[in-house]
Design a protein around this nucleic acid. Structure first.
Lengths: 347, 347
DNA sequence: CTGTTAGCGCCTTCAG
DNA sequence: CTGAAGGCGCTAACAG
């Protein structure tokens, strides 16, 4: 394919050295003279030598490739996470190969199946919504390839995980609604099989208990995570005889969907219906009224996940860790109940 | 690193065959009996054999890896493009390795320098804003690694390129403003060294000429591509003695920035100041008033770029192609001038 | 400190 | 149709 590439052989010939010496010079081995090393390095630069990673990988049984599998990269959270992953991967000399599942379990399976275990050193994964491929992941780990789960975590696998502090974030969010004067707080949630959903719902319920606010089954909807799901969930909620006066959405996309529906129905956001999200997608600050939300450290989630994975890669028996990253309440107009403030904010 | 992996040797031993026969069976070579082939394939499945890509790559001097370098992946356009790239790459058995430059030319250079030419089969690039690394890209191409440019294209390099129809898109956008009754149309533009910027500006100017509308130097601002740039550009425009009554922004992010500034200044969007963008970022439909824009086929841009690259990879002397993808006008409220309509739309 | 040798897993002649 | 042998570029013992 390519025109002839410079190899260590060429350098060795040029310098009248053996290939092993040249190889040692590159790897900064302890047993090369400073002089030889310099000669090799300058010659390499002159010849524009580039190491052949296939050859190195073949011999060392490693690849410097890390695979990332995630549902999508077109939303704020995932694109930011993967940016964080890429940053630390790049700085440590690892290539990031990514696979998007579009939340299709079949696609997930096909990716895992095709994943040649010899072509990656580690695997970073955020599962699909309905993943039941626990044993496949387990097999990969058993085979010696480290796996780290982030955001969406399959319980029962002994490996490191990185998540947001979903429970406390939800608690904070609903506390904020309660303190802002809302009494009948609904929750539009996500797929309930996921830890992220369960923890946020748990935080929601505990906050209600803490403030002695009513808990009603019909005020909790369970669907997907998309904007459309949010739009639909609002219509469901409004069918209740006793209508809620605030909504805690499992994420910003659903919150924004909810706001869109409310606008369509001419229900005043904040005043008549408080809305709070989770993520702090940049859109929350652009939409009006601004969406109150729990900011999530997406970039950190990415970089920490990658760091953990790299540690698993370098230390054979690195103890699995569970990282929980704290969120932060960002107050905007969607949870301002008092009328005159709403007026002031509305554009 | 990994526990022992199954190799063709294992299969050969198990089946009492030579490794070369096994190898042939996998590659569907013409000279293997159907029977042997089947035996090999079933044994491979049974043993859970996975080919070692390093070894194959070493011998064939290829890697099945494609590198993508782009400024960022956290905005709609780029994340969608890369999704398109990944889709066709995955379907053809290529891994996508990506590098983000954050629009830093230094980072770009470091990425190109570190890019081992033997570790990728092709290179998909969207340059940084101020890239002056033409000769580096040229060297990569001369070295035998195909390169395809998308979106931001460095002129003067003989290779395939994929762009939107920036000229006609801009023409359409400004025509729409003119037909909607705006008379003094400003343009908040991007970095002028880029073809994309130049073409959009050309479309803008030609539309003004066509409708015999005034062209004024001070109504054209040149800065970056970010939302903040858009916010600032509006303040610049409003310093003009003769203020414009509409803005054509080089992209949606700048248009949204502009809208945010206008809202802050209580200038009614649409009625007092028309705004039109370029991209059709999903936010354009969420923000209110909705942003009129030129929709750009981002997913197509990605998949077509990747297809072109793969063609360059497989055919040594594939004739470079320039692909221009058409845009589409999406009318929303930000270009509705008549008062009552604005009222109707405002939430 | 340096050179020699063998081999990583696979493909590709060249003989049978 | 199948097997044997050599080599892709590099590293890792083992000698000196």
């Amino acid at each position: 394919m390519h025109t002839h590439c410079i190899t260590i052989k060429d350098i060795a010939r040029e310098l009248n050295l053996s290939v092993s010496t040249v190889s040692r010079a590159f790897r900064d081995a302890y047993d090369v003279s400073q002089e030889t090393k310099e000669k090799v390095l300058t010659m390499a630069a002159q010849l524009n030598y580039k190491p052949n990673f296939n050859a190195i990988g073949l011999v060392k049984n490693q690849t410097n490739n890390i695979a990332v599998m995630l549902p999508s990269i077109t939303n704020y959270y995932f694109s930011t996470v993967i940016t964080g992953i890429q940053e630390v991967g790049y700085s440590k000399g690892y290539n990031i190969i990514f696979y998007v599942t579009n939340d299709s379990p079949e696609r997930e399976l096909s990716i895992i199946r095709n994943l040649s275990l010899t072509s990656i050193d580690g695997f970073l994964v955020c599962t699909t919504l309905n993943s039941d491929h626990r044993e496949h992941f387990q097999k990969i780990i058993d085979n010696g390839t480290p796996v780290v789960f982030f955001d969406r975590v399959l319980p029962g696998i002994r490996t490191s995980t990185v998540m947001q502090d979903d429970y406390n974030g939800a608690l904070q969010a609903v506390e904020h609604l309660a303190k802002s004067g809302y009494k009948k707080i609904a929750h539009i949630s996500g797929r309930k099989s996921l830890a992220i959903t369960q923890n946020r719902t748990r935080g929601y319920l505990d906050a209600l208990k803490k403030f002695k606010l009513p808990i009603r089954e019909e005020w909790i909807t369970q669907s997907g995570f998309s904007q459309e799901d949010g739009e639909n969930d609002v219509y469901e909620l409004l069918k209740c005889k006793d209508k809620p006066d605030a909504i805690f959405a499992v994420n910003d996309r659903k919150a924004i969907g909810a706001m869109l529906s409310l606008k369509k129905l001419k229900i005043r956001i904040g005043e008549e219906m408080g809305v709070i999200g989770f993520t702090n997608d940049p859109v929350s600050g652009i939409i009006s009224p601004g969406l109150t939300t729990i900011a999530v450290p997406a970039l950190d989630a990415g970089s920490k996940s990658c760091e953990l994975l790299l540690r698993h890669i370098s230390k054979k028996n690195f103890e699995p860790q569970e990282l929980i990253l704290p969120g932060k309440l960002i107050v905007r107009e969607s949870t301002v109940k008092i009328r005159q403030q709403v007026e002031a904010y509305a554009s």
